Simulated assay, not measured.
Amino acid sequence: MRAQAPAKVIRIGSPDLGTAGKPSPGSSALAVAHANRWLEEEFAKDGITVDWKFFRGAGPAVAEALAAKQLDVVFLGDLASAIGRSRGLPTRYLLPTGRGSNSYLATAPGVKITSVAELKGRKVSVLKGTAYQRPFDNLLATAGLTEKDVKLINLDWPSSKAAVVAGEIDATFGGSDLFLLRDKGVTIPISTKGRGPDFTINAGVLATQDFITTQPQWAQRLVNQVVRGAHWASQKAHREAYIKLVVEHSGAPETGVRAEFEGETLASRFSPLIDEALVAGYQGVVNDGLKLGILRQGFDVNAWFEPRFVQQAVRDLKLERFWSPLDAQGKAKGAA
């Protein structure tokens, strides 16, 4: 019997960061490629299908699908990807798609919380195992609190939004999509903006070792298209078009997207370079994860990164001088 030819499909998994029934990888360089169907166009000429899978259960659900060998490539926030790697998922980190994202606390109608200290004893939802858990825990620590000092409820993002609007919980912690709830009486009194790298989130694209080994050319072509998206989103002239794209394709509230990027240079947000600052950021996530008991064991963060694909993409697209690599302190080191 002849062996069956392998399926010509790339299975991409992402937390569902969209709202209003619009599945989306959120506000990232990957979101640009997704909205413009650049990956589909790139691979269609060879009869290769791109199969997007969006998970309401976010990082933990993506990890389950990876463990079941149902995905080849994933888009994940820093903590979720680190948890998966620490548990033995054979992923390699290909490139960042967004750096330094902030988080927000939304309070139920009529609930007055103006400081982190006032969260003590309150019912607060956080989707555990996602990138938001680390900045939430670090925020609590600024007031001498831990998760044990609040009534922490583990809810997915759609459920937490419904619960805070209904007053079933006092507050929920998550992304800028929470601004969507302000017209329902929800307030957003606290954010992590301006608090430094311990309170921000990096996100990136990872692939399984098997995918990289068996389909390195596919991996390179995919990375090229994501870097193309990063380049487009990084340009000052595209700022308004980028905000419009995110709002249109994810259903995210424009006020939230604008608040997230206010005062930010999008070129620094969307630099796809694997530089010292990125590696230091993920090392910080692993260190905090171990300290907070979210990760049971560490791993070699530096060896996890697979920079050759993004380095080749930058050369292929002639973008060597577009982004500057950053040192571990976040200072520019010169052109890539």
Score class of each variant (00 low, 15 high):
L17G: 12
L79C: 07
G47M: 04
R195G: 10
P325R: 14
W304C: 11
G21M: 03
R122W: 03
A35L: 06
K244N: 11
A68W: 10
T130C: 15
S191T: 02
V150C: 08
I169N: 07
M1F: 11
R308V: 10
R37F: 13
G121I: 04
V164E: 04
L266Y: 12
Q297A: 15
P216N: 00
T49F: 13
E248Y: 09
L206P: 12
Q283I: 08
A335L: 09
F55G: 03
A5E: 09
L139E: 03
S24V: 00
W218G: 08
L30W: 03
E260A: 11
A65N: 11
S103C: 14
L127A: 10
T265E: 15
P6C: 10
L278W: 10
G284F: 03
G256I: 02
V124Q: 01
T130F: 15
L245E: 01
R37G: 10
A80D: 08
K193Y: 02
T97K: 11
T213P: 11
L290N: 03
K8T: 00
S250D: 03
K69I: 07
A259W: 08
F305L: 02
L278N: 09
W304I: 03
S250Q: 04
S14Y: 05
R11W: 05
V116E: 06
A143T: 02
F299G: 14
N102D: 13
E41T: 06
L290M: 01
G47K: 05
S176M: 13
M1Y: 10
F75C: 14
A332C: 08
L17N: 13
T97F: 14
H249S: 14
L222E: 05
V73W: 06
F43G: 04
D137R: 13
A267N: 07
L319S: 05
A162P: 03
L127I: 05
R308F: 12
A141S: 11
K8L: 11
S250K: 01
H249P: 10
R56F: 14
N287H: 08
W323T: 02
A336C: 13
S103Y: 13
G251I: 05
I274Q: 05
A336K: 13
E42G: 01
W38F: 04
E118F: 00
S14D: 02
K161Q: 15
P109V: 05
T130V: 14
A141P: 07
A5T: 04
G84I: 04
G256H: 07
S268V: 11
A280V: 02
S159Q: 12
P325T: 08
F136T: 01
